[in-house]
Each structure stands twice: as C-alpha cells, then as structure tokens.
Amino acid sequence: MELLQVLLLSLIQGFTEFLPISSSAHLILPSQLLGWQDQGLAFDVAVHFGTLLAVVAYFRKDLTLLLAGWFGSLRGNRSHESDLVWLIGFATVPAGLAGLLGSDFIEANLRSAWVIAWATIGFGILLGVADKCGQGEKTLLNMTFKFAMVIGLAQALALIPGTSRSGITMTAALLLGFSRVESARFSFLLSIPIIALSAAYLSFKLMGEAGVDWAHMGLGFILSCLSAYACIFFFMQLISRMGMMPFVIYRMLLGGVLLFLFWQI
C-alpha cells in the first residue's frame, strides 16, 4: 500500500464507522476512482482495532459502570447496568450468527457497487422516516429484551454492504421510541462486541501471513482511532440538535454519485 492510500482509507474508516452513512459506500469510491488494490487483511485488522479502542475510550465511564454492575449480578446483585450488559450481549447474537452463516453468500452476491448504492439510498430513506416519525423519549432505562433483540436483528442487516451498522441500529431504536441521543448511545455500545468479534476473527485469519507492513498497520491503527474518537465526540454533542436529516441527505447524494459512476463504467 502507498502512504496516501493508508492515510485516506484510515481516515475514511474512522470517520464513517460510527456515522450513519455506511463505511463500505465510502471505501468503494477511492478504490474504483483511483484504481487501488484491496488494502489487505493486516490493514483491516489495524483499523478495526483502532475504531474499537476509540469507542471503548469514549464510553470508558459507562463501561466501567456496566462491568461493575455485571460482576455484581454474578454475586446476585442485579441492577440496570447488569441488565444492560446482558441485553447488549443478546442483541449481538443475530449479527454474529448472520455473519458466521451468511458471510460467504454475501461476499459472493451482495458486494457489488449497485447493491451498495441502492442500500445507501434505501436505508437512508428509512433513517429519515425513523427520525421524523419514530423518535420519542425512551432512555436506556426503558431497554427491554424485546427492544434489544429488534435492534440486534436490525444490526444483522448491516452485513448488506451500504446499509451502515450504526445507521440501521439507530433507525431501529428511533422507531421503537428512543431519543436520538439514547439511540446513538445504545448503537455505539452495541458496536463494541461486534467490532471486537470482527477484529478477533480477522486476527485469526491473519495468523501465519507473511510480509505484514507493521509501519502501515501502526499508522492505520492510530489514524482510525483518532478520527473515530473525534467522530463519536462531535456526533454525540450535536445529534440532539441537528437530527438525522443531514446524514439522510448526504446518503441520497452519495448513493446518486455511486449510481452515476458505475452506470458510466
């Protein structure tokens, strides 16, 4: 990989991983327009761990309380925090199973530019509907097993390239009546186990691979971590005021650009 490719893809991964705009839709553009080859497994591992560290660092206080509550529940002291840990775990199962059972089919049939473009547009429209009609006043204190599983099932749809994991989970939470801030918060907390599982799986595949460029991996890790942290910070500060419509409009434009580009090709 060239240095420019490392810089651009790391920043794209970091900035788009947690925004509801689809990282896959953005990653396909430079590869097609600039003729770049696949970035390789080692780079994927680096940026996954970078974004994982970012979300863990941002929510470190929440995670400390959640883990303390969960360990307390093992001693019989049930709490809201311990319940939320279990709900996040249960909500992770659908995406984990879908990835395990359907990854080969998705890789063979759904990783086309057309699928990414239409998914970017279609799920963007759904996000707009949810933001306009669905959001309420529910907080994570109102999270139940039923709500968590609906959001977890929605997260499994993010295996379709162009959907956006954060976008579809926020959409589901908004439609269930959660506020924008709480929808984003649950989406980000829910991302931790799924990103960790993905990073672990990629790391396992990387074992024994020769010729790893550690300098590029390190740079990718640092840039994706810093950009992802900045993205989460500003998103959480602004989401209650600006809503989801800027992202919906952006998705429409991005999807239109992808359709135009690949129609020409």
Rank of each mutant, 00 (worst) to 15 (best):
V129R: 05
G102E: 08
V115W: 06
G122E: 12
S82N: 04
S23G: 12
S24F: 15
G50R: 00
L41N: 07
Q37V: 14
R78L: 13
W36C: 01
W86G: 01
L67G: 06
L66N: 04
H26K: 07
L63S: 07
V93S: 03
L41I: 05
Q135V: 05
L97R: 01
L110I: 09
S82E: 00
A108Y: 14
G122C: 12
D38F: 06
K132C: 10
H26N: 08
L87Y: 02
G96M: 02
T120Y: 00
G50W: 05
R111E: 12
A130S: 12
S112A: 13
N109H: 15
V129Y: 02
G89V: 02
W118N: 12
A117M: 10
L66Y: 09
A119C: 15
L67A: 14
W86H: 08
W118A: 12
I88T: 00
L53C: 10
L33N: 10
D38Y: 07
K132P: 00
A113L: 11
R111L: 09
F90Y: 11
H80I: 13
T64N: 10
A46F: 03
W70C: 09
G128L: 06
N77Y: 14
A57M: 15
C133L: 15
G122I: 09
S23D: 05
G134M: 08
W114F: 15
L97W: 08
D38C: 14
L74W: 02
V45L: 05
W36V: 07
F123H: 03
W114K: 14
G134D: 06
L110C: 07
I21M: 07
R78M: 11
I21C: 12
E137F: 14
K61C: 13
I28F: 07
L97I: 15
S22G: 10
Y58L: 09
R78T: 09
F59T: 11
L67R: 09
A117G: 06
Q135A: 06
G35I: 04
G72F: 02
D44V: 12
I121V: 05
T92R: 10
S79M: 03
V56I: 12
A25Y: 01
L33D: 13
H80S: 14
G72W: 01
S112L: 10
A54L: 04
E107Y: 15
L87D: 01
P30M: 05
